[in-house]
Computed example of a mutant assay.
Amino acid sequence: MAVKDILLPYFDLLLAQLEQGNAKLELAFGRHVHWGYWPQAPQGVVSPEDFSQAAENLTREVYDAAGIENGQRILDVGCGFGGTIASLNENFSGVELIGLNIDTRQLVRAQEKIKACSGNLICFTKGNACWLPFPDQSFDVVLAVECIFHFPQRRQFFEEAFRILKPGGRLALSDFVPRAFLLPLTALSMKWPFSRGFFGRCNLQCTLAQYKSLAENTGFKPRVEKDITKNTLPTYSFLRAMGEELKIKDPSAKFETWIVEWASRLRLLRYLVLSFERIK
């Protein structure tokens, strides 16, 4: 299946600013490009340093849900700038780490920034999450940190993850999961002009019940279900502050972020960490 780059204006902005040497963005988003996780509510203004640590915390929440061990072969799908790969590289030994992304620019940065240590092997490759370019039963763990809503189909990704995982292998992900009655509103995120907005096409259409059904139908059993919505809420004040500092003019950036924030605060949209085990 041919791989095509997708429209992600927020990555265009990030890459341009990082190339220009924006120190605050380098610290906040140079490693991880996703929401943050705070074990306790922060006191005062969230700094780039605070956000960087919170983003690292969120990554660890996801890969801890997979029960990663030394010596495993791990695929990070939608790897971005390689932050999850970097964290695993620093905290485990003898692991083979493969980062996959559809955007060549992100992979180039990841390759430049991350070097293997502790007997680990690291490889970055371009590919589509719904047509994984790997043999059957070739991985112990598949991760998808805050990216699955960009994939063309969740079911096809689950089927591909099942195919490449060894029996007993685990899939762990984080996602914005709506309550069922919110689905008519989240359906708008897939339509124009939102599909062409700051965050690109985002499918926020999978409820927790649908995730469980999807897992069962593709041969997985649920392993971890963790609601961390409250712990991610400080992300929004930081995003607003950075948006003002960067003078982002795209109206969809503010509007889309505002919708997600208030849906989350009202518990209509939950940020969940989920993991599943391939049934032997």
Rank of each mutant, 00 (worst) to 15 (best):
F157G: 01
F157V: 08
F157D: 13
F158V: 04
F158K: 03
F158A: 07
F158H: 07
F158P: 09
E159A: 13
E159V: 04
E160I: 00
E160C: 06
E160H: 03
A161T: 09
A161Y: 03
A161D: 14
F162V: 13
R163Q: 07
R163W: 01
R163N: 05
R163L: 03
I164S: 09
I164V: 10
I164A: 12
I164K: 12
L165Y: 02
L165D: 14
K166T: 11
K166A: 02
K166L: 11
P167V: 11
G168H: 09
G168K: 09
G168Q: 05
G168N: 11
G169N: 05
G169E: 00
R170G: 07
R170L: 09
R170F: 02
R170P: 03
R170N: 02
R170M: 01
L171W: 05
L171P: 12
L171V: 04
L171I: 08
L171F: 06
A172P: 12
A172V: 13
A172F: 06
A172L: 06
A172T: 15
L173D: 10
L173C: 07
L173M: 06
S174T: 04
S174M: 00
D175P: 07
D175T: 08
D175W: 01
F176W: 02
V177T: 06
V177H: 06
V177R: 09
V177N: 06
P178C: 00
R179W: 03
R179N: 11
R179P: 11
R179V: 05
A180E: 15
A180W: 03
A180Q: 14
F181G: 13
F181K: 13
F181T: 12
F181M: 12
F181I: 12
F181N: 12
F181Y: 13
L182N: 05
L182F: 11
L182D: 02
L183F: 03
L183C: 10
L183G: 08
L183W: 00
L183K: 00
L183V: 06
P184G: 03
P184I: 06
L185Q: 01
L185R: 08
L185P: 02
L185C: 08
L185K: 00
L185A: 08
T186E: 11
A187Y: 14
A187M: 04
A187E: 04
A187P: 04
L188S: 04
L188G: 07
L188P: 01
S189R: 04
S189N: 07
M190G: 15
M190V: 15
M190I: 13
M190A: 05
M190T: 13
M190D: 10
M190L: 12
K191S: 10
K191C: 13
W192L: 15
W192N: 15
W192E: 14
W192T: 12
P193L: 02
P193Q: 01
P193D: 07
F194S: 09
F194M: 10
F194H: 06
R196P: 14
R196Q: 08
R196D: 14
R196H: 13
G197W: 00
G197R: 00
F198V: 04
F198I: 09
F199C: 02
F199D: 10
F199K: 08
F199Q: 15
F199G: 15
G200P: 08
G200L: 00
G200S: 07
R201F: 07
C202K: 04
N203R: 05
